[in-house]
């Protein structure tokens, strides 16, 4: 069996060699040259990279899985638990403070009510005392006024009787002089009373 080895040299010269399989001289040489040029296959995984990558990943994963992650996670959980506990204690403190405030306000209300009651009582006594004083004063004033009124009306009555007496004397005299006869005392008295009632109008 023959293998055709075609080599391409320069512009247009193509060399064709027919080589028996047994010789096997040319083919390995070309492959070696190509191998140097080509670099790695772009798709196929390379053993050494597989080894290094896999080894480093496994080491890392084991370290994280069994040592680093549990420690980190424990720290995180601890801190979160601590934060939660702090939060709860803060809430308890807030609640306690709120209770204190409520108590204080209750006491404040009681004290205020007491003070208001005292003030009211004081005001009431004050009011009643004042009322009593005013009443006493008023009654005294009324008594005085009635006394004065009585004195005044007595005086007026006296005056009036005096005037009536005087006027009746005058009228009686005048009538006596003009008519020559003393008028009836009852008639004179009625006339005078009429006149005075009209005059005092």
């Amino acid at each position: 069996m023959l293998t055709a080895v075609i080599t391409h040299r320069g512009e247009n010269s193509v060399q064709v060699k027919l080589v028996g399989q047994s010789t096997g001289l040319v083919t390995p040489k070309i492959e070696a040259e190509e191998g140097q040029d080509m670099g790695p296959n772009p798709i196929a995984p390379e053993g050494k990279e597989l080894l290094w990558g896999g080894l480093s990943f496994v080491v890392m994963a084991v370290a994280i899985r069994y040592f680093l992650f549990p420690k980190l996670k424990k720290g995180m959980d601890d801190r979160y638990a601590g934060i939660r506990a702090d939060h709860e204690s803060a809430e308890a403190t807030t609640a306690a403070a709120r209770g204190d405030v409520a108590e204080y306000e209750k006491a404040l209300v009681a004290v205020r009510a007491e003070a208001a009651a005292k003030v009211d009582a004081a005001r009431q006594t004050l009011d009643s005392e004042r009322q009593a004083a005013i009443n006493e004063l008023n009654s005294r004033i009324a008594a005085r006024r009635s006394e004065a009124d009585a004195a005044l009306s007595a005086a007026r009555e006296a005056n009036r009787s005096q005037i009536t007496a005087a006027v009746s004397a005058v009228v009686t005299r005048a009538t006596e002089l003009s008519v020559g006869r003393a008028p009836d005392a009852a008639v004179v008295e009625r006339a005078i009373a009429d006149a005075m009632a009209g005059g005092s109008r």
Binding site: P40, I43, A44, P45, E46, G47, E49, L50, G53, G54, F57
Partner: peptide, 11 residues
Amino acid sequence: ATARMAIPAFL
């Protein structure tokens, strides 16, 4: 490093 097949294949 993942542009070579080795690491993606392994993972």
